[in-house]
Each structure stands twice: as C-alpha cells, then as structure tokens.
Design a protein around this nucleic acid. Sequence first.
DNA 1: TTTAGTACACTTTTT
DNA 2: GTGTACTAAA
Length: 815
Amino acid sequence: MSQNPSRALSHRGTLNEKQVEAVESVNGPVLVLAGAGSGKTRVITHRIAYLIDEVGVPPYQILAVTFTNKAAGEMKSRVDALLGSGLRPSSPLVSTFHSFCVRVLRRDIEALNAGLNRNFTIYDDDDQSRLVRSIKKDLGIDDKSLSERQVLSPISWAKSRGISPAGYANQPDNSSDRTEKIARIYKSYEERLKQANAVDFDDLLIRTVQLLRTRPEVRAKYHERFRHVMIDEFQDTNGIQYEMARLIATNSTEQAHGGRWNPDLWENRSLFVVGDVDQSIYSWRGSDFNIILGFRNDFEGTKMIKLEQNYRSTQTILEAANQVIEYNKQRLPKTLYATADMGQGDKIRYYQSYDAEGEASFVGEKIQEHLRRSPQSRCVVLYRTNFQSRLFEESLRRRGVPYNIVGGFSFYERAEVKDIISYLKLALNLDDDMAFARVVNSPPRGVGKASLEAISRLQQELGISMWQTVPEAARQQLLSPRAAKSLREFMRVVRSLSDRVQAQEALSNVVKAATLDTGYVRALQEEQTEEAESRLLNIEELVTAAVEAEKQGESLRDFIDHAALVADTDQYKADARVTLMTMHSAKGLEFPVVFIVGLEEGLFPHSRAAGSDTEVEEERRLCYVAITRAEKNLYLTHAMKRRVFGEEAASEPSRFLNEMPLELIDDLSLGPSWLKFRNSPSAYGGAGSLGMLAASDSHRSSPVKKTSNYTGKTYNSADGVREFFNKRTSAGGSTGPSQGPRPSRSYPGNKSSGRAQTQYEDDEFKTGMRVRHAKYGRGVIVQCEGVGEDAKLTVNFPGFGHKKFVAKFAALEKS
DNA sequence: TTTAGTACACTTTTT
DNA sequence: GTGTACTAAA
C-alpha cells in the first residue's frame, strides 16, 4: 500500500523516540502532552503523512482540527510538503472547529428543522453588537451599564450551556433587574437570528452538535467518513467542541464514556489529541483544561505520551519559563528539557523605561540593532492588549523599519470592505437584517433614520425580515416618497445581484457588480478626498482577493464565509522581519528574538484578572506561552508610567518579573532600576515606584551613560520628574523625537518641533484663540493649562478633533 | 436627511 | 488618545 516507503518512514530518522511513538500510534484514543517547542505540529503532520503513505488510509478519512486559521494554514502546507506534490485522490481535511462546522451545516442544517436553511448568514462580532444595540432600542432598554459586550458574554455563556432565555431568567441565585433585562434581550436576540436566517459563532458549534446528537443518520455519515480525528491545542477545547469530537469519533451520544474500551470501535480509527495544560489561555472563552485532564477517564485505554524535549529555545529561556510556571498550583508537573546544541544562550535582557514612549523607543532601537547584525533574524513584539501596539508602530515607522501587525482591525473589518461584503451577503440571503441595515443607505440614498425606524416598527409587528417588510411599509404609506423611491431602486440593484448569484455568474463579476452597480464606488470617487481614495484602494484589494479566490475555485459562498471566519489569517506573514501581536495570537509560533513588553501590574497580569487566583494563573500561563516563543533572545520591558485613557498612571513591575531567576537576567536599564532594587534594596534610594524615575530613559542612541550624574537624586513626585526633564530638554539635550518625555506629547506626526523656537512668540495663547497648524489647518484653542512656553494647549481642529500641544513645541500660528 | 461638531465611553485576550 | 453616538444646524 505504501506509495513511497522511504519518505514515509523518514520521520524515524528525524523525530525522537517519543515523537515516533506518537506518530505510529495508529488506532485508539491517544493523548499527547506536548510542552512548548516539543515538536507538536511536527508530530501531527508526520502522523498524517504516515497514515496516508504507510498505513494506507485514504486522505479524506482524516480530519485535523486546529484552533486558529493560522494553525490550520500552517499545518496544511506542512502536510503538503511532507506528502510531496504527487496527485492524490483526496486531501486530508485540515480546518478550525468553526470552519468545519460551517461545512457541516451548509450541507445538513436543514435536517435540524430549526427554521434555518443552508443559505444561512454568519453574524460576526460586529453584527452581534449591532443586533443587540437594535434590540435594546426596540425593547426600550436604555441602560448604559449594559454594553453590548456585557450582554453578549452572558448570552454566549448561556447558549453554550444549553440554557434557554427562560432558564437564564430563572437562575436560582439571580433575580436581579439586570438578569431579567439580559434574558429579554437574549430571547429577542435568538428570534432575530432565526428571522434573518443567521447564526452566530456559538451557533456554529451548538447547531452542529445538535445535529450530530439528534440525527443519527447525519452522525453516522461523519462517523463513517472521518476515521482519524486529530485535535491540536487540545487544552483550549470547550465542552461543545469536545462533544463534537466525541460524537464523530464514537458515533455514540452517551456522555461520559466515548467508550468503555471496545477494540471493535477503534479498529482503523483514532482520536488523537495534542495539548499542553500550561498553555491553556482561553478559559475566558469557555475552554476548559479539565477536559484534557479527564480525557483518560472518558476514553478507557487511552495511550498517553509526554513530549518534554524542547527543540526551540536556549537553556536560559527554558529555565525562566519553567520557573515562572512553577508558581501555578493548577497544573501537571512537567519540565521542558533543552536540547544540548542550543546551548545556554544569552541572558534575558531587561529594560525599565520611564514611560511607554521610552519603552517603544528602546524596543525599536534594539530591533534595528538585531536587524543590522543579522538581517535574517525575525523579531516579534508581544503585548497583552492590542491598544499597546500603537506606540511600537510609531517607533518602528520613525526608524523606517517595516513591520507586520496582527490583530486589531483587519482588512475585513474596514467599513468599506464590510459594506461591499454586506451587499454580497444580502444577495445571498435577502433576510440578512444586519447586512440590510448596513448598506441600505450607503452610499447615502436618502433612506435615513426615520424611514428605518418605520420599517423596524412594522417589522416587529409582522415578525419577518426587513427585506420583506419594505414592500408592506410602502403599501401602508409609512415611507416618504423619496425614501420609497430610493428603496425600490436599492432593492432592484440587490435583486439583480442576487440573480447573478443564482445564475452562477463568476465570483469576481458578482463582487465587481457589488462595487459598481450599487453606486458605492461612484459615491467615493465623487468625494475627491484622500480618505475616499484609500477606501477605493481597499475595495480594489477586495476585488483582487475575489479574483484570486475565483482562481482557487471558490464560490461566492466560500468567499463570504472566509471573510467571516478568517479575519486575520493573512495578517501573519511568516517571513516578515518584524511582527507585532498580542501574546494570545503568538501561540504556536516561534521567533529568534522576542520582546515581551508592558510587564506591569494591572496590564500584565491584567487588572481584570487580579481578583482571582485562577485568572492570575491563566495570565501566568500566558506569560509562559510568551516566553517559550523565543528561540535565542528574550527581552522584557516595562514602563514606570503610561497613559491610560489619556490619563497618566504610574505602574509597578509585574509580579512575573519577580518570578524569574535573577541570575538569568541582564539589566539594560539606565540608572537604578527596579531590578537592581530587587537585587540589593540598599543600593536603591527611592521609595515607591515613582522614586525610580530618575532612572529615566528616553534612552539615548549614543552609548554614553549619563546615569551616574543623576543617581542619588530622587524625584518623588511626577511633577518633580517633569521638571527634571523639562530642564534637560531645554538645555539642548534633545537629539531624537523620543527624547525627553513631554508632559503633553504633541501629535506623533508633528514634525515641526524643530522649528518651534522660531515660531514661538512671547504672546500668550489663550482659550478661544484661533490658531493655524501646519498639518491640521485652522483650529480653536479649547483649553489652556499653564502659562508661557510650557503651557499645554488643547486645540480643536475641525476634521481632526482635539490635539494637545506644548506651546513651545507646537508650530502654532495665530490667525 | 445629512452633516458637522461635540461629548463620552472605552481596553483584555478571538473563532 | 480614539472611535462612536448623540445633537444641533444646513
């Protein structure tokens, strides 16, 4: 059966004993506990190749599930590489849980009789929020303390546990007003989804499990087909995903035991799961690492294999990771062993900066250094929350270092892209209310709030979709003549799009039609602004993506599903020299040089986690994940103060820093840092975190260490420190844009500070005064703090909003 | 109805 | 600092 024995068995030469054992465990339940960097993906990909080439399993019988699209893509290409390019009758299915569900539901959802048909729309985050917003309005719930998020997360919680709206309202311990409101929104939310023939992300999983549980013939179909199910990152599985896997693998609806050991069941069949308890970082999203702990009980006869040999990192990095994770109580003991030839490696480098700008500037400089020394090395900056990315972007841009950023808003989240996609979604499913509401008036065609409210009111009465409501609203003369006319035209265009879809017209043609026939592109062209220009470019990019997808043989349906589920797949470019992303996104990746930034209490561990031990332990696991991404060099940084919501706040070093072994750390901070304090408290004069500010930073590009000048002088208040820096900057110490933290930083794009001196006149700026700015044009001073050249000015520029300046730095002209 | 301007709420982490 | 939601005027 073997098509290429020498290649198929090549893993025996390249994998270690344990890995080989895992690869060759062909049948039955298998649990692989794989530490970070222990070759987990290698094991899965080699096993797929082994099953196909050596055991003779037809590829289509193999299902490999990953947690992210990134991982799925990676695995696919690695499997392809292993299998070679020879033609095969089929390929293994490598997909995320969610896209697997879409696949199943697009085929079989109608068997559920749940009022949904296979043309269902997927509502993403944004759609969900809009829906909740609209429901709150309908129900007259005007509660500011109930944000969309605060409603959606309990709804998701309840849905995933099979709790109905009524059940949610009747929870034993909860009878508050708030719960009652959420229950009402929940109820309406579900109705509106059904009305729109739509499902949310949770539904994808829930409906699939429902289908497999209640429809034996459907279950049998998938059970027969997927004889080898593999799950990566198993520690991140939630109860529903686990049940799905169990149903497919065992064809049994019995809960606790996917099987008492039954040799017949496991003949030519396996359930192969790979995970690491220490890397469980998604419990906030319902994942439960107890599942991995309980796996052996659920599946009698489970073969368990531990991979502890790490191939990724230096001894130093592993020691740090091992020590930090030891602080967790909830875990299985496990130690990562370094590979001898990785060596001890460099020490971990630590840097304490005065503020967040200084941190970013340090990181930018070090990255530049690394790239100069070895242009091929890849660097990554890992932060806890997305909002931290901005400063690093600025710092890199200033240095002309190209970078790649993952997360934040993706291409598919841009308004214009979402608009075009909404047209397409609407063409596919005319009942998609969120798509309808989104595009009915973009470009503006005179269908405003009043018309929409009229439609919405009637819709509630009739209990049908908006699309279906419009003709009735027109009949009842609820619409202004203008709106009615516009709506007729709008519906004609959408219907013609829909016809194109029905007629199976080429994907790229339909997408082009959605940009042109709708008047969307024309409206943007007429705007003649820079912004409209960039939107047009994005739309062009979307059309290109459609052409590309068409070449791949995708249908419009595939294309749209992709947009809903794969929001950031393309964002991570494996060959990018510099990448910025959250620690969460970094799971599964590795980099020669890693910067973990913002190691501050309240930020990391995040303040929301501070209250509970389990949550702090999850943060610590996240820290462990972050550390173990590093192959050779690891940098840890934190800032003594940073702006949160525009307000400055002092911060303390993260507890995780304390948990790392001192002897592995090399302190690069200028002046007395917290680390030196930790080392020998007597060497450190200051009291409290602000006392250290003299350590400063606004670190210099020249290696001259001036810190000795400042030791012994401590600044115990933020003002004192500010004064200190102001003195220094005016003394001409400024050599770079990041020099000297300015109390009120001017806009980053402001390049005029060099000319500031000449622009500044003795006359005072005052509130209400009209000024002109090189970049923003005319504006009005709305706030004026302080006097003279140090005064902080808040200026409102029409079109740009409020900008803050320090009088002497800002090139402001009176006008 | 639209748009411009102002007030304000917001920051975990993601399919 | 930023994006969004509400409001006042065109």
